[in-house]
Amino acid sequence: MRTVRRLIYRSVASSATLVALAFAALAFFIDFVEESQDLGKNGYTVLDALWTCLLMQVRHIYDLMPIALLIGGILALSRMAQTSEFTILRTGGLGPWRALQLLAGLGLMSALLVAGIGNWAVPLAEQMLTQQHARFSSQQQLTLGRGGTWLREKREVPGMGTHTITVNVGSALSEGEFGLVRIFEFDARGQLTRRLSAASAKVDAVQAAREAGAMLPAEGSVWRLQGVTDTRWLSHERLSQEAALAGLKVIDERQSAALDWSSSLTPLVVSASVLPPESMSAFALWRYTRHLASNAQAAQRYEIQFWKKSFYPLVCLVMIALALPFAYLHARSGSMSLKIFGGIMLGISFVLINHISSHLGLLQNWQPWLAAAAPSLLYLLLSMSVFAWLVRYQ
């Protein structure tokens, strides 16, 4: 059985690798043509464009691995069926469920590889790609849309109840460093009491700041603000009592070159807020959804992406299950090429539906895990039904 496993694994793996390389080469060519439009701008060279395209390939390979496994599996197994190799294996004792177990092992190894790429290589490559884009942008920073990105936290103030802190980040300068930062503090009744405006901010973990002697909570971060404008408003009671006094300042505004502001927002949460959900690891998505839920912010988009990221490696098992029935097709019945083409189209339709389901789940307010798992369960049931029919009647 070890020889049979080696034969099937080598055939499927070699075909899938060739398909993945072909897709990656096509994606690299398209990316390079697009990046070549920026050559010469802000010192952007050909080597920089090549490096940018290489970083993009990590995400492309992650997206293409399941479909490459499907096409490679279909080509390898249908070729074995055409040359009667699989028929000989069946005659030698390779039963249907044993064949399913063999290919499930290959699918599981592929799933582990996809999980490693998606949770380690893709976030690292996307982070480097973000820094690359910011480096050659006209303002040497990455803008985060017209309104920037927003964060929120709640803080217990002794004797004053729960204060709500809202943070707006306008741009990302580098890893852990952001520009155009605004911090708004509201008291327990929702009245604005303080606003911090900074030209830039560097977010350090609490541990590094505690080693420098600061008294900080066990978890969170220190925002080292530069170019700070600190504006404070008097409380409603003080304002009503003292507004009648002539010359009283009801707003206290101070300028400072630097200011340290402690926060419960961890560097992981801050970094997650400026990255697209598709480029985050499952752990980062889980931490960020917990933060959003605890601060009464909409988290469904990130919850769907978390479950999608968690279920995505299992797509490899679905792709293998879709490819297995092609080993039981008879070349003598004709239309083999048409059947192979139909199988490839079926796999592509799965990829499309898998992408659409998350958007439908967001629009229709489905359960996040259901929106992420429904396409995989549907196509797995379809492939197992076809496999059982072919085993029985072919």
Rank of each mutant, 00 (worst) to 15 (best):
Thr3Phe: 06
Tyr9Gln: 01
Val19Asp: 01
Val19Glu: 03
Leu21Asp: 03
Phe23Lys: 00
Phe29Val: 15
Asp31Val: 05
Phe32Lys: 04
Glu34Thr: 01
Ser36Phe: 13
Gln37Trp: 12
Leu39Val: 14
Thr52Lys: 14
Cys53Ile: 01
His60Arg: 15
Ile61Gly: 05
Tyr62Phe: 11
Ile67Pro: 02
Leu70Gln: 04
Ile71Leu: 12
Gly73Asp: 02
Ala76Tyr: 03
Arg79Leu: 10
Ala81His: 06
Ala81Gln: 06
Gln82Val: 05
Ser84Trp: 10
Leu89Asp: 10
Thr91Gln: 13
Gly92Pro: 00
Ala99Met: 12
Leu102His: 12
Ala104Pro: 09
Ala104Gln: 11
Leu106Tyr: 01
Gly107Ser: 10
Gly107Tyr: 03
Gly107Gln: 05
Leu112Arg: 02
Trp120Pro: 00
Ala125Gln: 08
Gln127Pro: 00
Met128Ser: 01
Met128Asp: 00
His133Glu: 11
Ala134Met: 07
Arg135Lys: 14
Ser138Ile: 12
Gln141Met: 13
Gln141Tyr: 09
Gly145His: 09
Arg146Cys: 11
Arg146Leu: 15
Gly147Gln: 15
Gly148Gln: 07
Trp150Ser: 09
Leu151Met: 15
Lys154Thr: 15
Pro158Thr: 12
Val167Phe: 07
Val167Tyr: 08
Gly170Cys: 00
Ser171Arg: 01
Ala172Arg: 13
Ser174Gln: 10
Glu175Thr: 14
Ile183Met: 13
Gly190Thr: 12
Leu196Gln: 11
Ala198Trp: 04
Ala199Asp: 11
Ser200Tyr: 07
Ala201Leu: 09
Val203Ile: 15
Ala205Cys: 04
Val206Ser: 01
Val206Pro: 00
Ala208Ile: 06
Ala209Arg: 10
Gly213Asn: 07
Pro217His: 08
Ser221Ala: 14
Gln226Cys: 04
Val228Ala: 06
Val228Asp: 05
Asp230Val: 07
Ser240Pro: 00
Glu242Asn: 12
Leu245Cys: 02
Ala246Asn: 13
Leu248Ser: 15
Lys249Asp: 08
Asp252Trp: 08
Glu253Thr: 13
Arg254Gln: 14
Asp260Ser: 05
Ser262Tyr: 09
Val270Arg: 02
Ser273His: 05
Leu275Ser: 13
Pro277Gln: 13
Pro277Leu: 10
Glu278Asn: 00
Ala282Pro: 06
Phe283His: 12
Leu285Ile: 09
Trp286Asp: 03
Arg287Val: 04
Thr289Asn: 01
Arg290Cys: 04
Ala293Cys: 04
Ala299Gly: 06
Ala299Ile: 02
Gln300Cys: 01
Arg301Ser: 09
Phe306Leu: 14
Phe306Ile: 07
Lys308Asp: 08
Pro313Ser: 03
Leu314Gly: 09
Leu314Arg: 09
Val315Cys: 06
Cys316His: 02
Ile320Val: 14
Ala321Arg: 03
Ala327Phe: 03
Leu338Arg: 15
Lys339Asn: 05
Lys339Asp: 01
Leu346Gln: 06
Asn354Gly: 08
Ser357Ala: 07
Leu362Met: 13
Leu362His: 08
Leu363Ser: 15
Gln364Glu: 10
Gln364Arg: 11
Ala371Ser: 11
Ala372His: 03
Ala374Ser: 00
Leu378Ser: 09
Leu381Gln: 12
Leu382His: 07
Phe387Cys: 05
Gln394Cys: 13
